[in-house]
Design a protein around this nucleic acid. Structure first.
Lengths: 135, 135
DNA sequence: TATAAAACCTACCAACTAAGTAGACTAATA
DNA sequence: TATTAGTCTACTTAGTTGGTAGGTTTTATA
């Protein structure tokens, strides 16, 4: 399951994608409209900024807005950033790989199946972007 | 990610599937061969028994063995039993559904995408069985 | 029928993670 | 220079994960 954190991230990103033409959007506005705890949302947006997905402006008239085009940010990227691995096992993960102890990946039935699951999942998440979150 | 618990469950089930012709297998034998903490494995096997996947015999000459045919037990069933939901969001889960607050499932982009992920995942996990874990 | 083997059961625990909060600091603008 | 708004560091609290301890019950067999 996705954590609350990444669910909030997607909600916020969807909102920002909708408001892309309106200039900077306040954290407090997003928090209110999407019912996300304000301080928690602060952390999330900051992470998204540090990952170069969002940009921000301080002071009056400030707020958050997209740095990249939403259509260029894959869902998979956001999940990996906020939650970590997408795969069901470390030994089949592409970005968070860890080798299996006591099991030879070359002929491990579980490994095989979980690789299939991974590929099926990524087929979706690598081809859908934040643009798909817009109304 | 799968928990250690369900990973251990799969290891143990794979071992039992291999030894299906040999009569009851000791917990301690599985624990040793698959390097699973003994007492932890006890709990896991008990859960699998209560779910009617395994059967056990007490006393001398006892142990664990399959109640169902491994080929009739889907991977998805084991994951749901040990770890819970397979879906990435409660609002797209088939077995652990919870409705979304503050978001209309009828036109929610995230919901749409996560339904696709769910279906792609289940396509694999509902069609692979414990038989696929055998050597 | 005693005894040993084996699963079963209840309870506990330490470490970690998820989810969120508090409060001070920095930068931009009017 | 006052106000606005994001940034940063640190903390808290509840729940989950990954176990462990130790006793109870059931069964085969000598």
């Amino acid at each position: 399951m996705l954590t609350k954190k990444s669910q909030y991230a997607f909600k916020a990103l969807g909102y920002l994608a909708d408001k892309q033409q309106d200039g900077p959007v306040l954290i407090s506005e997003i928090a209110k409209k999407k019912r996300i705890p304000l301080k928690f949302l602060e952390n999330i947006l900051l992470e998204l900024k540090k990952a170069d997905i969002l940009e921000s402006k301080k002071g009056k008239g400030g707020g958050y807005f997209f740095k990249k085009d939403p259509a260029d940010v894959k869902m998979a990227t956001v999940i990996r950033l906020i939650d970590g691995p997408i795969s069901m096992l470390p030994c089949v993960s592409l970005y968070f790989y860890e080798r299996c102890k006591n099991c030879d990946e070359k002929h491990c039935g579980l490994n095989d199946v979980m690789k299939q699951v991974r590929d099926a999942t990524l087929q979706v998440l690598e081809n859908r972007t934040l643009k798909d979150l817009q109304d």
